[in-house]
Design a protein around this nucleic acid. Structure first.
Length: 464
RNA sequence: GUCCCGUUCGUCUAGAGGCCUAGGACACCAGCCUUUCACGUUGGUAACACGGGUUCGAAUCCCGUACGGGACGCCA
């Protein structure tokens, strides 16, 4: 059997980080088994679904390199098919028309709650349709079995069973003829030939009733795998106050897609001691049996650490592009040819020190400034009268080199020895003058990246 | 409230009855490296929720309790 999985977001918001992980698991599972990964946009809630969100979700998936193997299927386009299946169930006696009004249902729900019993809503189950009130359009309800139990043999949670007496007759077709989500999902998964339904545990209890639809239609069940949800640091459902929660936000905050995927993979999935797993390795190692059963908490610090690892491995040209894009809007910088060249030249040293693209862009900004540079407090403290005098003396020694990093390093060491100073006593004031701060890549590499003209200009700006 | 599920260092996890004096990673602390900051490196603090069983032996199996999460919509 060829594995077919699907990711099925509803376009009512940006792609949530938990959904992204569900997409990743579906993707990895299908790839691991040589199968197909599909996308279905669940836009049956016409009021809340928008094309903008659909596009945003597609963008986020592409950014994460989790694009589906086929164009997405829009659930809204299949309403006729959903209604057809509901009609078949009606004819076969597996469903019935319900003439209850929303008000009546709300009252029944309250009464059931007050009496501490599950709500039923099955007043029309065996009632003669001839008694139907005039002018009321009926909804169609599943005629669920009352005896026995329904079992979901879940790939993650194991066999999960519930007594059928606990389950109500859910609505499969609304009174306006549109399908409910629970019903549409079953019909679509069946028609799409989905073999493995991998989704969040918030759908686990719904699965019982969906299984009853499969049974009613005589369809083969797919395998289900319900993966735990992602929580915030306090164990509660991930929400705004925990920090970033949509893929879009993580992207803005300077995380690399490969780092985010690696982090998400390790959240709720383990394989021995592996921590840093690239895509190819993930496809090779991933399987459902490695997925844990307990919800996991989002750990932004660990994500940031992982991001630093991927940042250091990333291509310098790519990172330069990212940095330029982030610096583009800043009015205090001059992003001319020379500045871009400097950023590209110093990238190996810059990326070594950054954890996110935001850090990286910040640390590169000094390369795109014009002297005189603004000095931060620590840098200003470095540039004492003595230090400025020392820099005035140092400038010719630097100017005499070819401005390659090794030559500059050698010149600095000679100068240190000749003037009886430690290297740090020279490097720090020099760094302050060159960068406006006390933190930067190696001073030789920084000088080389700035180039002879710019470096000497920056020195003149502080030595007068 | 009812039903379903879960519980190993602060966090993510390894662990399939003896290999566990419970391993790795992040975070944290200390040392080393050093031209600043990072990186790297060495070491350290730190966990089997609790109570009963089963067994020669349990983090691993069973039952309770506590705590946590999810579901109970003509939302998805």
């Amino acid at each position: 059997m060829t594995v077919r999985t699907r990711f099925a977001p509803s376009p009512t918001g940006p792609l949530h980080i938990g959904s992204a992980r569900t997409a990743l698991f579906n993707y990895l599972f299908s790839r691991h088994h040589g199968g197909t990964f599909l996308l279905r946009i669940e836009d049956t809630d016409r009021a809340r679904s928008t094309n903008e969100y659909t596009r945003l979700i597609l963008d986020s998936l592409a950014w994460l390199d989790l694009s589906p193997d086929e164009p997405p299927l829009f659930q809204s386009a299949r309403a006729a098919r959903h209604a057809e299946v509901a009609r078949q169930m009606l004819e076969a006696g597996h469903a019935y028309r319900c003439y209850c009004t929303p008000e009546e249902l709300a009252r029944m729900r309250e009464e059931a709650l007050a009496e501490k019993r599950p709500a039923r809503f099955d007043v029309w189950r065996d009632r003669d349709p001839a008694e139907a009130p005039p002018g009321v359009a009926p909804a169609i309800r599943l005629k669920a079995p009352r005896e026995g139990e329904t079992v979901v043999d879940d790939l993650v949670q194991g066999p999960v069973r519930v007594a059928n007496a606990e389950l109500d007759d859910m609505i499969i077709l609304r009174s306006d003829g549109s399908p409910t989500y629970l019903h549409a999902v079953v019909v679509d998964d069946h028609d799409m030939g989905i073999t493995h339904v991998i989704r969040g545990t918030d759908h686990l209890t719904n699965t019982f009733r969906q299984v009853q639809i499969y049974h009613a239609m005589g369809w083969a069940l797919p395998r289900f795998a319900h993966v735990p949800l992602i929580h915030g640091a306090d164990g509660a459902k991930l929400s705004k106050r925990h920090g970033a929660q949509s893929v879009t936000e993580f992207r803005e905050q300077g995380y690399l897609p490969e780092a985010l995927c690696n982090y998400l993979l390790r959240l709720g999935w383990g394989h021995g001691d592996v921590e840093v797993v690239d895509r190819a390795e993930a496809i090779r190692l991933f399987d459902i049996d490695g997925v844990g059963r307990a919800p996991a908490r989002m750990d932004y610090a660990k994500l940031t650490h992982l991001n630093g690892i991927y940042l250091r491995q990333a291509d310098d040209g790519r990172l330069t592009e990212e940095v330029l894009a982030r610096l583009a809007g800043r009015s205090d910088l001059v992003l001319d040819e020379a500045a871009m060249r400097r950023i590209r030249a110093l990238m190996p040293g810059l990326k070594e020190r950054a954890k996110t693209l935001v850090d990286l862009a910040d640390s590169a900004a000094f390369l795109a400034r014009r002297p005189p540079l603004p000095l931060d407090a620590k840098a200003a403290a470095q540039l004492t009268e003595n230090a400025r005098a020392m820099l005035r003396q140092l400038a010719p020694a630097l100017a005499a080199t070819d401005f390659s990093a090794p030559a500059l390093d050698a010149a600095l060491r000679r100068f240190a020895e000749a003037t009886g100073r430690k290297l740090g006593q020279i490097a720090q004031p020099l760094r302050a003058a060159l960068t406006g701060s006390t933190v930067s890549p190696g001073i030789d590499a920084t000088l080389a990246a700035l180039g002879r003209e710019e470096s000497l200009a920056r020195l003149r700006a502080v030595t007068g």
